[in-house]
């Protein structure tokens, strides 16, 4: 099942689109399914859609756990495959 990595919104585009970043990797996603997204928010993204917002504190905890488990270093290459 999917691991959910919080990504920070860095840019809002027209058409309910946004750019999110994680450790320097950027991706264009849809924010059509959630309300009131702003630059700086953390979101959980699945199959190209932001599905949930998470607080910065929660995002920080999850990212720290992922790093502790060695996920971020190993798996960012997978994400980078579909990056901007």
């Amino acid at each position: 099942m999917c691991l959910a990595i919080p990504a920070r919104v860095t840019q809002l585009d027209d058409g309910d689109m946004a750019v999110v970043a994680l450790e320097g990797v950027k991706k264009r996603i849809s924010i059509a399914l959630i309300e009131d997204v702003e630059v700086g928010d953390y979101v959980l993204v699945h199959v190209g859609y932001a599905l949930h917002k998470v607080s910065p504190e929660e995002a920080g905890r999850t990212l720290a756990m992922m790093a502790e488990a060695g996920v971020l270093a190993e798996e960012l290459e997978e994400i980078a495959g579909g990056a901007l």
């Binding site: 099942m1 691991l3 959980l44 599905l51 949930h52 929660e58 999850t62 756990m65 992922m66 502790e68």
Partner: peptide, 23 residues
């Protein structure tokens, strides 16, 4: 990521799991 759960108590696990697999 289940290695993160080793040594933790049940309540910790139940809090961590939904954060890791939040979707």
């Amino acid at each position: 990521v289940t290695g993160l759960l080793s040594g933790r108590g049940g309540e910790d696990v139940v809090k961590l799991i939904p954060a890791l697999y939040a979707l």
